[in-house]
Amino acid sequence: MTSVIILPSVRLGLRHSLPIVSGYMPVAVAFGVIATQAGLSPLAATLVSTLMYSGASQFLFIALLANGASPWLAAALALLINLRHIVYGPSLAAELPCHPRLRWLAHGLTDEVFALASAGLTRQPWAQRIDWLTGVALGAWSSWVAGTLIGSLAGEWLTSHWPLLAQVLPFALPALFLVLIAPRFGSKRWSTALTIAAIAGALFAAFDLPNLGLPLAALCGALAYWRLS
């Protein structure tokens, strides 16, 4: 009989991914519902989540296709939304040992996984960081794929029976982001920069510019940080 041995650091990463999982599940279920309503089979919807694995651009891609837009236009706009991911890798590079698995782990570098890794990698021993990140990325990715499959098969039944749950669980994501930056609020310089970045991010999102607003909001925080030096 064969048994699967999961390394303790991978298990720890899986456990640390639970806040992301609770935030992803309802959104992935909603994506599954929308994708099947747009005419995709449950298999095709799950394939989109497996390969594209990027919430905002997936919703945009499917919405444009459902409205009769050209697939090439939908692809171009989806890629444009994902441009923000370019800054995540360089930001984490110094905290990660060079490892062949990193090439594949980069597929799992979403906003939320980046945020958790950015704050959590330094707390892991150097030799176990790749395994820990594997656990985090695997937990988040599998919940996104499983949520899409569930949503495309039984999403409408689920959301009609537990509407409050679908509304409340996504709040795990802002709560996670707050907990990740909370230790920095001991310094006045960091507090000011982080508060400015968060307020700028909220303003950009309120004006319907969340993707462009993300790097710009971080830049506002950086300017405040350097101004206070």
């Binding site: 800054v87 980046f114 802002p174 920069a193 982080l194 991010g201 925080g221 940080y225």
Partner: peptide, 23 residues
């Protein structure tokens, strides 16, 4: 030493994500 902006970008992007996801 690694460039200073590398240590700065992570927390600031998380703060921006907090703002965006709170709306």
């Amino acid at each position: 030493p690694p460039p200073a902006w590398l240590g700065l970008s992570g927390p600031l992007l998380i703060a921006a994500l907090l703002g965006v996801s709170s709306v």
